[in-house]
Computed example of a mutant assay.
Amino acid sequence: MNETLTIPLGEQEHLKEFFKVLTDQGRGQEVIELSSLLSQLNQMEKQYTEVLNELKTVKSQLSNIQEKGIKTSAINGVLKLQEKVTKAKNQLEHIKVDISDSVKQSLSLIKQQGISALNKAVDFIGLRKTLTDMRENLNTSISQTQKQIDKINAIGSELHSLNEHTSNLGRVLTGRETKELTQRNEDKGILAVVAKQLKHSKSMLEGMVQSVTHAIKIVDRLEQAANKDKEKKPSVRAELKGNSQKEPVKKAPVTQKKQGMSL
């Protein structure tokens, strides 16, 4: 099993070694930023697991609904939401693996080529794109969750109304006076519990969007720091070219012709 899926990022030995290299090169701020990013990713993984567990509970509760059509429709909606969240969680796992592998490759290059290979550690552009895709995925999940909440509430209201009308119909048939229709109590019943859990899941997903946005900002700062470091260290070719331009041009010695004596 890949160690990135069992050992939290930041606690793996090659990452610790990489942090030491950065620190030794006077890039302590990048260590702080990268550590913050890795902590953010580890926290997000826990949040994804929590959301998926909640959706699993919601699906189990929906299976207790008696009306098959309503139950099937509600469960299918939750299944689509689970699929979307699982996709986002898989994106996160790929990010963790990519960062870990990139750091391993960078350490190997540093040992072969020297410290000049340091800036090749992480593909920040690719990482930013994946995080942006993840954020879009999360926003879609939030939208789907809200639709499910609205759907569950609508089903609850319709069932409540149907039960009240059925009760009044029975009264009419038995010659009794009908009762005034009441508003549904959205805090009672299976559907109320399901809606409440979906609201909590939506709240967590919204928090995760903020986490991804924070991670993207960290990646931007890391990319800027890496670019600045590249600017500070010109290539060997550029350095040689600069030196050649600075060398003073040597003038050829002027030979003086001796004038003959006139007789």
Rank of each mutant, 00 (worst) to 15 (best):
T166G: 06
T86M: 03
S203R: 13
G10P: 01
S201I: 04
A215L: 01
G126Q: 12
K233P: 00
T166N: 13
S161G: 14
I152K: 06
K241T: 14
F124D: 04
A226P: 03
E93N: 11
K147W: 07
L22I: 06
Q146M: 07
R237I: 14
V212E: 01
K129V: 13
S262A: 10
A238M: 11
Q256G: 00
K258L: 07
I190W: 05
T182L: 10
Q105E: 12
I190S: 07
A215H: 04
P253N: 08
N76T: 15
S244Y: 11
E3T: 09
S73G: 00
S116K: 15
K96V: 07
E30W: 02
E3H: 07
E67N: 14
D98K: 10
T49Q: 14
E50C: 06
V58G: 00
K96G: 06
H94I: 09
V172N: 10
M208D: 02
V51R: 04
M204H: 06
M208P: 07
Q113W: 12
T178Q: 14
G189A: 10
R184F: 01
I75P: 00
L81G: 05
K120M: 10
H94P: 03
M204E: 09
Q256P: 00
L37P: 01
G69S: 06
E206I: 08
D98S: 14
N53G: 08
K196L: 08
E33S: 05
T166I: 11
T130M: 12
